Simulated assay, not measured.
Amino acid sequence: MPKFFFNTRVGDDLVRDPDGIVLRDADQVWEVARTTIRELLRGEGQPRHLLAASLEVTDRDGQVVLEFPFSEALFDPSAEDTVKH
Results as ranks from 00 to 15, higher is better:
24 R>G: 14
40 L>C: 07
57 V>S: 09
2 P>E: 08
25 D>I: 06
29 V>H: 01
52 A>I: 03
70 F>I: 06
52 A>S: 15
6 F>E: 04
53 A>L: 05
41 L>T: 10
9 R>L: 03
78 S>R: 12
35 T>H: 05
62 G>N: 02
79 A>C: 06
48 R>L: 12
31 E>W: 04
12 D>M: 08
67 E>G: 08
63 Q>P: 02
68 F>N: 01
75 F>K: 04
32 V>W: 03
63 Q>T: 15
76 D>L: 02
35 T>V: 08
69 P>Q: 08
49 H>V: 05
31 E>V: 04
21 I>W: 03
48 R>Q: 12
19 D>T: 12
49 H>L: 13
10 V>A: 03
55 L>Y: 02
67 E>R: 15
18 P>F: 13
19 D>A: 14
62 G>W: 01
34 R>K: 10
30 W>Y: 12
80 E>D: 13
58 T>Y: 07
53 A>D: 00
55 L>D: 00
70 F>D: 06
34 R>C: 05
61 D>A: 13
64 V>F: 01
33 A>Y: 02
56 E>P: 03
81 D>E: 14
63 Q>C: 00
27 D>W: 02
84 K>F: 01
54 S>A: 15
18 P>S: 08
11 G>R: 01
60 R>N: 04
19 D>V: 12
44 E>N: 14
11 G>T: 00
10 V>T: 08
20 G>E: 05
25 D>Y: 13
73 A>F: 08
71 S>L: 13
34 R>Y: 05
4 F>V: 06
54 S>I: 00
66 L>M: 14
51 L>Q: 07
50 L>H: 11
22 V>W: 05
13 D>N: 06
82 T>M: 11
10 V>M: 00
55 L>W: 02
59 D>N: 15
14 L>R: 09
59 D>L: 06
16 R>A: 09
57 V>A: 14
78 S>D: 11
15 V>C: 09
71 S>P: 00
